[in-house]
Write a protein that binds this DNA or RNA. Sequence first.
DNA 1: ATTCAACTTGCATACGTATGCAGAAAGATC
DNA 2: GATCTTTCTGCATACGTATGCAAGTTGAAT
Lengths: 343, 343
Amino acid sequence: MRAEKVTSVDVAMRAGVSQSAVSRVFTPGASVSPKMAEKVLKAAQELGYRPNVLARSLITGRSRIIGLVVAYLENQFYPDALERLSTALQAHGYHILVFMVSNDDAGVDRVMGELLDYQVDGIITASVGMSNALAARCAAAGVPVVLFNRGQDDHRLNQVTSNNLEGGRKIADFLAAGGHRRIAHIAGWSGSSTGRDREAGFRAGLEAAGVGLAACVDGMYNRETAAAAAREIFAGDDRPDAVFVGNDHMAFAVMDVLRFELNLDIPGDVSVVGYDDVPLASWPAYNLTTLRQPSNRMVEATVSTLLGWIEEGSSDVQKIQIDGPLMVRGSARIPEGWLDERL
Amino acid sequence: MRAEKVTSVDVAMRAGVSQSAVSRVFTPGASVSPKMAEKVLKAAQELGYRPNVLARSLITGRSRIIGLVVAYLENQFYPDALERLSTALQAHGYHILVFMVSNDDAGVDRVMGELLDYQVDGIITASVGMSNALAARCAAAGVPVVLFNRGQDDHRLNQVTSNNLEGGRKIADFLAAGGHRRIAHIAGWSGSSTGRDREAGFRAGLEAAGVGLAACVDGMYNRETAAAAAREIFAGDDRPDAVFVGNDHMAFAVMDVLRFELNLDIPGDVSVVGYDDVPLASWPAYNLTTLRQPSNRMVEATVSTLLGWIEEGSSDVQKIQIDGPLMVRGSARIPEGWLDERL
DNA sequence: ATTCAACTTGCATACGTATGCAGAAAGATC
DNA sequence: GATCTTTCTGCATACGTATGCAAGTTGAAT
């Protein structure tokens, strides 16, 4: 049952060469003659040898492991991002080590130690913030960090987000242009930059359009909280005629409440707009008008900054914001002429 | 910028003891006096020392890494399982290294090499099969494998699934009892044991109830394919009055086609039943009647068999099937008295 | 005080690989 | 063919930790 580990020494003996020769054959860019390479590869093939990544990492200081810290995968945006990140990194010879964490400083703190124990080459956090103390530790350990879909002021932390401020503004424009007059907002978690920025952009946009914000509640990026917020906001007689929900995940819950508990028609009685454009948003059951976060481009940016730091020793902190379009679908009244003028 | 790696030697010097002493303090169950432990821990604390998991693995032969091979995360069942698996394993001091793979032998094959390069202590495959050649390689390398939600005949492979045969049968009973007479099946991928077993159970159940199977198409566990199948099956005049769809992920697509393309009422015109009970199934928009795969118990079983092999050197192959209840909701006509008699 | 057992500790070595260095081999140039 | 480059190879060592072994310490029991 126990494994017969085959090592570079075994291969060396079989091929009648030194262990260093074997190592060099498996090290891209090392100096080996074609004859030697052939001999070694043949022996390796026969024995089924493959270099031990962990032993290698001990010398090179590179583990080819990227730590991914993530709080929850319920919101479809994150599994989607995870899949893309993993695939992209695999193409570069890296792999993702997953760390699930509760989204508070204590949770992140506890996990960060384990993360460094594995000698990860880099860290990506998704949907998770990071205390400055932790940022300092990672910097001290020489491990680059990229915050994915979350911003933070710390000057050591790279970050990739969509342009949340601008996104919020676009949605405000859209709803205002649609002639809505009582507009509500069920916001993303106010403890997150994304939540705050979307709200700020939305408020700014409404103000510019001369429309007031009828109601605003923190939905905590949580289905239940968002549903409760919807019940509250839409309780009275003078209910809103539009609501911007801080992400799609909550928007689905809100739509369910509006339709199935309050028997409201969307978009007849009320317009709903979300944020993210997760796959589910385009399914007919919801057909949600939403601002797309281009996860493919966000992933690209994340991977390239991370690899820039790791492989090219880059050290300029990136704060990347990526613009996304408003995906106009059927959950919100479409302003007259809106579609034409965007062609 | 470069890291100041602090090693056990540094700690040893600071504490005025040998390196082995430091190692022992950080090795549970090793022999150390309280005084020594205190000295070492103090020094470690001051220097911010933490053992290097990778270096340790070189000696112990244990990496505390579990490889997870997964084909796609679009079906909500898998992110959910991933989250649970990761959390459960973390509690035991293990972490998950992710390998995305296309679901064919070539894809799995290519990735399996990388997997072993990382000296993983165990492998979990989710939604992915494994050739016998690969099973042999893992066995030879002494790495235990658990197939999660997929069966395979190979006698070396552990597997954890729901009781798909029985599940299919339950659904047949339910639909037959509901008085449906033209029953169709949009099956799970016939290349997977889950797809085949659910279909077989379903057929057996219908036969026992004396009802024929009006139509049966492979949906490939894919939204598009399933939607196309629905269009095909429901094209003619004598359309089915019920359809069992091989998993929830496809069922949502089918429901969308029935409602929004064919303008059929669910369950008035046609009953739809799914399989998995992903979170989305219980959301009001779909409110899908479906057979629950108890992912919490499946994860428990997976983790405990895997750790049994790794830590206790177990070597009896487990083929675990876990029963799940039919979650009766609103997407399928409920047989008279069905709910009462199950109380 | 003596003997013995039970605990602790340090020394040395091993895990599997990469790499600086120096020497060997192979071409290149005249 | 002699000399100088260039390319290749082996030797030795290092990475950070765990562990068998023997020596040392402690304390209990006589």
